[in-house]
Write a protein that binds this DNA or RNA. Sequence first.
DNA 1: CTATTTTATGAAAACGTTTTCATATCAATA
DNA 2: TATTGATATGAAAACGTTTTCATAAAATAG
Lengths: 356, 356
Amino acid sequence: MVACKYLRYMATAKKTYQNTILDIAEALKLSPATISRALNNHPYVKEKTRRDVMEMAQKLGYRRNLMASGLRSNKTNTVGLIIPRVSMFFHAEVITTIQNDLHKHGFSLIICQSNDSVSMERELTETLFASRVDALIAACSLQTIDFSHFDKFVENNTPVIFYDRVPVDGYKATLIKGEDFKGAYLATKHLIDAGCKRIAHISGPLTSNLYQDREAGFLKAMEEHGLPVQKEWIFHHELTHENAKKAMQALFKKHIVPDGLFANNDTSAIAAIEYAKENNIAVPGGLSIAGYSNDPRTAIITPSVTSVEQFPNLVGKRIVETLTELLKNEDGGQMYKTDPVIIPVELIARASTATY
Amino acid sequence: MVACKYLRYMATAKKTYQNTILDIAEALKLSPATISRALNNHPYVKEKTRRDVMEMAQKLGYRRNLMASGLRSNKTNTVGLIIPRVSMFFHAEVITTIQNDLHKHGFSLIICQSNDSVSMERELTETLFASRVDALIAACSLQTIDFSHFDKFVENNTPVIFYDRVPVDGYKATLIKGEDFKGAYLATKHLIDAGCKRIAHISGPLTSNLYQDREAGFLKAMEEHGLPVQKEWIFHHELTHENAKKAMQALFKKHIVPDGLFANNDTSAIAAIEYAKENNIAVPGGLSIAGYSNDPRTAIITPSVTSVEQFPNLVGKRIVETLTELLKNEDGGQMYKTDPVIIPVELIARASTATY
DNA sequence: CTATTTTATGAAAACGTTTTCATATCAATA
DNA sequence: TATTGATATGAAAACGTTTTCATAAAATAG
């Protein structure tokens, strides 16, 4: 038997499967260093050697041990994602794109759900930080005002990208924002153009930039058209089906009732339609309704619901583009974009706001 | 200065942030081994020591380096998931539960989408295998007949759990199956009970166990009630909106038309309803329709659509239960359950099959 | 044809844990 | 008191890469 150069390896009785760089080295009578270089396309490796290595790697079914390489090189090729919940239409679409696009760049995606809880969100940042993700994408909970649990990433020079629900400008992270002001403005204006004079607004908790911006857009449109805004016609609660129904009850037990409703998500808009049906309020006619997000359900319900498209796939695409760009900045540049990336919105007019 | 015991560490100039086990050891004048044991609740560590370590870890903001520990202990605490697409209602719900429950057990989830392509699915198994996931969960593409790309996990003693779309019994993996035969049987019987005599069936590609089983259930119900089955009233195509519309066209341009339709997903059922509306076919009355999956849209469209609930959250829950149980079998037992786990179905009757 | 640069490879350390083996302390038993 | 067994800790190796440093070989220049 020929004397064995890399004894450390030979001593260890191998299982069956996990072949290492040492196996290749052994087989080709080369050093592990060369194998590593060949596998990583290091320039200083002979073409023939590279071919040999690739071939042997193939033959032995070699697969790089990502933990070993991650430990050594301090890269995981993994991106973390924190979202409220996977099974919300908008987020599911965003994730779909993010995962697909990241995969093209050789990154894996670890998805975590905060269930819209701040404390869970905070815990997840710990987990993902411990996992040494190369970057973090986050859509925060609606209650997140303090973003300090993301500081560790920033200080660690790990890029952080916020989308949908974002901290104020100035935080050292990249912001991907929808045109919430504009979306709300368009929806409200559309209701006004459809003849509505008394428009109610189902907003969300004002802790989130989303609803602040949208409310501002709503108010702007109202003001521009000289329409009065009723304080008690604006609701700030979690945007659930039940809450929307309660809001409708509150609205319609009063003496003067609205003739238009702008709801900040489609679940609420749909709940409003249900309430209207149950109470013989014509939609449109008696009440015109607009929602937000362009959930597939809006196109299907009768009447179909006017909504604001947020282009979730575009959001996902921009996120990955931005991320890969930032990650190319090997240590060099700053790990965030100074200006937020803006994703357009588009009003999708449907039957619930039709005029006759 | 006191002589430094763990020089290796002290030599390395530390960045700011990443504290290691050596920092704690240094601070407490203990060995790294003891720190590791304390952090991992090893029994042979003094209560006071443990407290000291925990405290110091807290103080130094220590976070275990998962790559180092993974490399050493050959565990990643990471589970891989391969699905066709995140943004399908059923899968989004399943994922939501899986991620939440896995997190409780300290596992991370890496989600990958095959986009229903066999070759992508195969590639993803490579990626996840290289990532050394502790377990794999997979809902295969509809075209997957050959499951050999999962063999490496099995041979490596890594548990594999299939759900929704599963290989034949006998494969050394755990199967989580819905009662597809029963679901289809119930839906078909329900149509029959509603008075349908001529029932069409929009199936899917018979490469998948799902559609084989459901078609069998459909046929069983028909046979049991002595109803003839028209070969050309059964469609095997990808279950898209467009395909369903084409199927409807094909059905309704014939001399004799169906009075019932059992569609294998809700997208198809909804497409059928649209077609019916466009062509003045009364639903129900002229045509009764049942779908599958209980997509939220089915409750909202007019008429609402009868469908089969598959309890995605229960699927997710069982998957995680099974997984954690298997992973407790440290090397010892077999890494799969011999018998498939069965998830019940429930028929949700709605307006589209109502009788008058 | 030597001197220099460029290309190609090897030796060995390093990444931060976990774990085996050895050893020390301590309490309980004979 | 000597002996055992349980408890508690330390030293050092190991996990599989990557990378620095050194050096050998080849190519180029003087």
